[in-house]
Amino acid sequence: MVDVVLQLIIFFMYTSAFTQFVRAPIDLPEQRGEGGEATADLVLDIAETGRWLVDGAAVTPARFGAIAQAEAASLGIGPDAFSVLIRADRNLSANHLNAAAESLDQLGVRRWRLGAVRPAGGSGAP
């Protein structure tokens, strides 16, 4: 019995995504996405209020830019290859999303991804 329980624990530890715990609880839109894991070199969370968060800490756009540049430098890659995942609240005004897109544009980041949560069933919200 204990052996089985230990095997289960090992299974759940192996399959759990611990990176999810550091992400802020954001009400993401329900969409299927394009498959694959929602990972990136840097994750920017945008709350419904428009506040930007990196690793759960509030940041200004300027501070976010500095973090992104430092992260890209530590990875040894340029902004072209640097990937950013934006996890924005589903009810967030697009003004904030546009501001984030402009900020990434100024940093030279060409490709970024919008986070979504896969629906339990169906094809997602209309």
Binding site: F12, E34, R110, W112
Partner: peptide
Amino acid sequence: FLVTATFQREEGRLSSAREA
């Protein structure tokens, strides 16, 4: 682990190539 695995929803991603 059972509880956290049950309530954690899988996240997807949607790409955007802003400057392509």
